[in-house]
Design a binder for these strands. Structure first.
Lengths: 340, 340
DNA sequence: CTGAAAGCGCTTACAG
DNA sequence: CTGAAAGCGCTTACAG
């Protein structure tokens, strides 16, 4: 592999001049610039990443700390990862994917070895054990997911409280007065998935304000169980005319359950889910839903991270960006059926 | 951040001695080793990755070249990625994830900058445009997927031909004499998914040998369409008693289709699929299937790659490892129903 | 506008 | 068993 010394010799200039000609960090005569570029072309020169990192203390790599959790819907995870790596590439960064069990150790290691210029954390829990380490690291970090304490980091998430209110508002406007909300299972909460609470509590408060009855459940996250759960909810609340789903497995199981009960949406029941478009596409789900936008969240997190790495953001202006919910209408919402 | 110089001073030895004490590459007195370790501990020393890479010309990073294709089932993709990054971590390597559109450019760039010690290519097509570049690179590469030309690379894939034969054999043994095989859509073939042919042709040949009628179709890869397709196949071949699926969407749609036709498996029809366990779990599919083992394939590819990077494998012994198909029995296979 | 030199933080022959 | 020194391939003050 040719080095910058080879380029310099061939162009008949010094190494520093060759370097500056390539970086454009000081003015260079047109003649020299041309000769350097020709030499680069001719030799197929590419700077050595390790040497550059050593000299500049920047690697142009971001560390992506993923956590793969049980009964998590994989496509959403992949969408986060894609959004992040694509946006990083677009901004000139590569992505180091870390999926080790021990996220704290991994974070510490990458930070100490100076292997990356910054971190994106996925699947951030309410009390995320990686955060203290991240705050002590010399590289900045951006989170996808809202923790209890957001000091020192940039945060991106769906606004789950607004999502809960939006679901209730939309059905209330249409005349619905009794709703069922199916959340993710309790163990998701226990491992720190506070967004489940955020959505459910906000929905409940709004329902109370509006005089709407809202029955809240934690559904299972796997297929045979959640189907039975759904049957149970319908049996328990025969007068409910609306179903709110913050549980992917429930959404996936619903077509079969409705079929089995001879129900259809929106004729017998209005349905609003909360999942990614990608999820909807994979399962061909016909339900209107609030897009959880994993791809977009990933992109924004990286964008902010890189602007911070490159010094465009100052220490002070930490971001907590909760993106407003939008219902992607697939026709599963209408006025409630007339009372039989 | 402390450097090895800081460690050396604190331990009262030279930098080279400190380095050797840590690497163990030459014998060190017990006394010195202890002092160096104490200094490391006390300072929280971690070697700088860029400096080490520059000195050793090894980065301990592998490049993972993913390609995200349309209508591909995402969870399988994620399983490959997990398998690779987990095995790499276990062997002391980090994983650089690259999902750029232009795989050739990405490969070239990572190779030239010496950012990685080797490559794993996913979603390898029959005539994969990345292969010539990979063969010219100075880093070794392992593929997941079997291309037409395997010179200079290590290859890992499911043995799709054996899979095709196994499906036919299994149902033939049980007494089936008329089968339907649903493959992935033709555009998957066109972009280089030769495994579709490999399975279908092998199944057809075996069926001919055994005197079994095998009706072959390319099914759609999305939900409403593939459902109609399946109905069409059943209508066209009312005497068929076995269904072979090399098409994830078909497997996902089948429960509904069978329900609609009042059919059940294995009573009215025996079914054998070909998809990952993870896919089966996500969709709660009750069909016996040949596991496409993405996680395992990813692990093996990385293992071989790293052993080659570290010189344990010689140039000559390139591997083409086709893992034998195994039917994961979920109870959807039985003798055909008695003729009505 | 350009060059000679120092330095980034490691590893590893070379010498003892 | 240990040290002084060179070198990996860059970038960037410093000097002109």
């Amino acid at each position: 592999m040719p080095t910058i010394g080879d380029v310099a010799s061939l162009a008949g200039v010094s190494r520093s001049t060759a370097s500056y000609a390539l970086s454009g960090k000081r003015s260079i005569s047109e003649d020299v610039r041309r000769k350097v570029n020709e030499a680069v072309e001719q030799l197929g020169y590419t700077p050595n990443a390790g040497a550059r990192a050593l000299a500049t203390s920047h690697t142009k790599i971001i560390g992506l700390l993923a956590r793969f959790l049980e009964d998590e819907f994989a496509p959403a995870m992949l969408q986060y990862i894609r959004g992040i790596s694509e946006m990083a590439a677009q901004l000139g960064y590569d992505t180091l994917l870390v999926s080790e069990e021990d996220g704290v150790r991994a974070l510490q290691r990458l930070s100490n070895t100076r292997m990356v210029d910054g971190f994106v954390l996925l699947n951030v829990a309410e009390h995320d054990d990686r955060l203290p380490t991240l705050r002590n690291a010399s590289q900045p970090g951006a989170l996808v997911g809202l923790p209890d304490n957001t000091t020192g980091v940039d945060v991106f998430d769906l606004d789950f409280e607004a999502a809960g209110r939006l679901m209730v508002d939309r059905l209330h406007e249409l005349g619905h007065r009794e709703l069922i909300l199916v959340s993710q299972p309790e163990h998701v909460l226990k491992r720190g998935g506070a967004y489940v609470w955020r959505l459910a509590n906000a929905a409940y408060e709004r329902a109370e304000q509006l005089g709407v009855a809202l029955h809240r459940y934690f559904g299972a996250s796997s297929q045979p169980e959640i189907g039975n759960d759904l049957h149970g909810y319908f049996d328990a609340h025969p007068a409910a005319t609306g179903l709110l789903l913050n549980n992917e497995a429930a959404a996936a199981a619903l077509p079969t359950v409705l079929h089995e009960r001879g129900m259809s949406s929106p004729q017998s029941i209005s349905v609003i889910g909360r999942y990614s478009d990608d999820f909807a596409k994979t399962f061909s789900l016909p339900y209107s839903a609030i897009d959880s936008a994993p791809h977009e969240l990933g992109r924004r997190a990286v964008q902010q991270l890189i602007s911070r790495i490159e010094g465009a953001s100052t220490e002070a202006d930490r971001t907590v960006e909760l993106i407003p919910p939008v219902i992607n209408d697939r026709g599963s919402i209408s006025a409630p059926p007339p009372i039989a």
